[in-house]
Design a protein around this nucleic acid. Structure first.
Ligand SMILES: [Mn+2]
Ligand SMILES: [Mn+2]
Ligand SMILES: [Zn+2]
Ligand SMILES: [Zn+2]
Lengths: 156, 156
DNA sequence: ATATATTTTGAGAATCAGAATCAATATCAA
DNA sequence: TTGATATTGATTCTGATTCTCAAAATATAT
């Protein structure tokens, strides 16, 4: 059993636990989702709708399934400067923050224990207990070549 | 001339520069805005609409004026977990990030040169030039007493 | 002060991502 | 296979914000 199938199996187990049903569309969406790092519902929709033999998916189903994946813990919603929700495939990933290129929309994941520590310290200093945080760094690739190889659909 | 009038004067100068007109509603909105730290268009609207002698303001005008203030640099849009835009009164303020209480909606401003430095370092390490960033820490006040004195309208 | 050009306003329509409805269909366990 | 239960697609709805446009206000030039 390869890695992908193992992930699908994990998903199926979650469904059984929650007394949910495994449908063709859920499987299709899951597979496509697991192939990406960050994607919007709209992008997934375009990718899966223009399919051969009438495999039509409703956008609503994409949203429902993506939200299901978030509940299960396989995905996480992100809200970057763009006003559409980006779904982060966090399967096999630990906590991380993001660096986003305003030119080519590339998204780089990073983690900084030092920053995390300072955040905690800052919270404590103000009498807060931290639940979660959002750290996003926006800028652009210094290297144009690198910048040109776009990861995301449309440049801004 | 007190501090507030000086701020209003600054606003008027901006209007003249941009060949815009000083209206009763713009003055009303500016004054109310300058009295707060963070406020939504809706909140401002409620605060200014229920006024005596038929001083009715359209919500659209609030939005327009708030956006004008942002163009001028007196305000800044923020997008916290809540899905409505919060307008930050940044007159006389330098860059800062936020600590937000999920219980009482209190918003604390802070700045951490150490974190800022690490952010730059992180960007550089990935070949990025930083333009701006977003850092929001969510949690709750440890001290209930302090938490109870709400700054914002409705608790979540 | 008056006329004139220009901007602004209010009311409501438009937008846009995402959620809610609901009848028809699919899944699954007995 | 059956029947209870969940899911789907099509469509409508929501809520925050922007847009439209005719009427009203303001600044500027007589
Ligand atoms: Mn990520
Ligand atoms: Mn602030
Ligand atoms: Zn982090
Ligand atoms: Zn900062």
């Amino acid at each position: 059993m390869n890695a992908v199938n193992k992930d699908v199996q994990l998903f199926k187990n979650h469904l059984v636990q929650k007394r949910l049903k495994l449908t063709r569309q859920r499987e299709t969406i899951l597979e496509a989702f697991l192939k990406t790092d960050h994607i919007t519902a709209e992008e997934l929709y375009r990718k899966l709708s223009g399919r051969k033999q009438g495999r039509r998916l409703a956008l609503a189903t994409i949203y429902r399934t993506l939200n299901l994946l978030c509940e299960i813990g396989i995905g996480q919603q992100r809200h970057f400067d763009d006003n559409k929700t980006i779904y982060d495939n966090v399967l096999h990933k630990k906590h991380h923050d993001h660096l986003i290129c305003n030119k080519c929309d590339k998204i780089i994941e990073f983690e900084s224990p030092a920053i995390e520590r300072l955040q905690e310290e800052m919270a404590t200093r103000h009498g807060f207990t931290l639940h979660h945080h959002r750290l996003e760094l926006y800028g652009h690739c210094i290297d144009w070549e690198n910048c040109r190889d776009r990861q995301r659909a449309a440049p801004r």
